[in-house]
Design a protein around this nucleic acid. Structure first.
Lengths: 332, 332
DNA sequence: CTGAAAGCGCTAACAT
DNA sequence: ATGTTAGCGCTTTCAG
């Protein structure tokens, strides 16, 4: 059986509370005693029992990370896990642990409610992908430390943190305009669904309006195949655009293939640029200019905020973090 | 304040132990009482306090997942997170939670030892990437439920579970031989480091020996660029091979680019096949024939074994799971 | 079938 | 500076 504070107390000839205080570095214990008790603890290979400690302290140093963890996300959404590792690494540093929770959007409200009541953890970080108005309502009612990763698609008084997609859009647009490009097409997903691209578009428009220019936007392009098809049409036009800007790497890859199939030169005949920087975007030929966002860093920030919030529950934030950066490569 | 069993006991006019038993479905409580208490619990929105429960039960339903979670793994190693989600989903089903722990290989032995002693969790799953002989020794000494994901590179009496890379190799080789290909080159990493490929090679050799053929293996190819270089040389040969089989998608992409740069036709002039099935392998042109391994499923199996092991600690396994499957596409 | 009571190992008032 | 003691909320013998 592992040693307890009772064993230490006996060995040191003091009371258990002295041991407890010494181990927790209480100011009311003399350095000499602390020193001695720690040596004894070390000698007996003592490790505090995490379960008993959590129980007594009414907190356990655990943070939940709730997201949809369906089969395949590891492949489809590498961003998500970059965030998770970022969160985990910060928490670890502060003595917290991260528990992953698969929470499908459908029954998120009930599940989250249960999780909060069970006090399995001290706080919860939620991926915006599972956020609904109903869930927002549940979170708003409970005084439970929480944070959303990703800007909610509706206004609500919850704390959230996100990448500034607007800045990313602006950065991309400014870069292209600076390079002298003028006729640019932006390929994005469904106008209703693809909130992220809309925000990028907002940023793009800011840059374009400064130059009194406009950008052509094509919505409803959600897959590699759709991207290939539309690109084929685009490059056949009389007044061919100079650049196709894609809202993700798969669309960019579609463009690339279509353009090459027509034997056009990139970037001379037509250039490509993309948001996100997946590993293969630096491997394809030509390598792709991309806007990269540091998801690990965002996870870090989120965790940092979570820890603050546990200590100071009425803290509130709605903010963007981590500036996107431009990675110039051969495709522009 | 959330309701406790005391509140329920009072409301139901019974003792707390009756409540506890009713909630835990003890055989010694009448169905009628169980029913009534559950309704009251429901009505009061009762949720058992996970911390108190863990304490009293001396177990907390938490499993640790230890791996190197350095910045960038989310992108570089999608397999890892597919495993994690697989583990998580099974555990969730059985009422367990998964805590992620960043454990760098260097100080893995001490860290793991601490984790085990603190009883923060009921068991630990370790990624083979952080396993050293020293760590194996630590694990061997402690009677703590554990499981390695990935076959250790040295013989040891620990429990592990892994994909059968040998089967994958055999599957790939048989497919190619069946297609009538004979002159095949296998591109893999460093002969010392790349254990996984060596195991694939073992499987390949089994298939080749049956046909009394041999495969040409080129080791030391670890990056996209190296793959391009070597492929350039390979395709210049007089007696050009019919297929290049790559141990991963990045190498395969390198081949692809080199071959296309020479205007050779795939698969007619030369074919490509790869192990692993990353999303872009079905997007490149031509799409790539690949051997896919279901990492989610492996995670599931691992979790399943972990749960069994907690109940039956002297259980032991060293096994392979999840058969690799072949995905035939245009590149062969 | 139900209840009383003794902890689980540690923390935190409070007293000394 | 150190010790006493009362819990934390739940599980689990042991009696009845």
């Amino acid at each position: 059986m592992a040693a307890t504070i009772y064993d230490l107390a006996e060995a040191a000839g003091v009371s258990i509370s002295t041991v407890s205080k010494a181990l927790n570095d209480s100011y009311s214990i003399s350095d000499k005693t602390k020193q001695r008790i720690r040596e004894i603890a070390e000698g007996m290979g003592y490790q505090p029992n995490a379960r008993a400690r959590s129980f007594a302290r009414k907190k356990n140093g655990i943070i939940l990370f709730a997201a949809d963890l369906s089969r395949g996300v590891g492949f489809e959404n590498p961003h998500l896990f970059e965030i998770v590792t970022g969160v985990d690494r910060y928490l670890e540093d502060k003595g917290y642990s991260l528990i992953l929770k698969h929470v499908p959007k459908d029954n998120a409200p009930e599940l989250i409610k249960e999780l909060m009541h069970s006090e399995e953890a001290d706080g919860i970080i939620l991926h915006a992908g599972i956020l609904t108005k109903q869930l927002a309502f549940v979170l708003g009612k409970e005084a439970y430390p929480h944070l959303i990763i990703g800007k909610p698609s509706f206004t609500c008084p919850l704390s959230w943190i996100d990448v500034s997609h607007e800045s990313a859009g602006q950065l991309a647009a400014n870069y292209l305009l600076d390079k002298g490009y003028r006729r640019i097409v932006f390929l994005m997903g469904d106008a209703e669904e693809d909130q992220m691209s809309l925000r990028r578009l907002d940023g793009i428009n800011v840059a374009f309006e400064e130059e009194e220019l406009t950008i052509e936007t094509i919505t409803g392009i959600t897959s590699y195949d759709e991207s290939r098809e539309i690109t084929e049409k685009i490059i056949e036009r009389e007044n061919r655009p100079e650049v196709i800007l894609c809202t993700n790497n798969y669309l960019a890859l579609g463009c690339l293939q279509s353009i090459r199939a027509k034997n056009l030169q990139i970037p001379d005949d037509i250039a490509i640029m993309t948001f996100d920087n997946y590993p293969f975007s630096m491997i394809v030929q030509p390598t792709m200019t991309a806007i990269e966002v540091d998801m690990f860093e965002m996870g870090n920030q989120a965790a940092r905020f979570m820890v603050q919030k546990i200590k100071k529950p009425n803290l509130q934030t709605q903010s963007f973090c981590t500036t996107p950066i431009l990675i110039e490569r051969e495709s522009t």
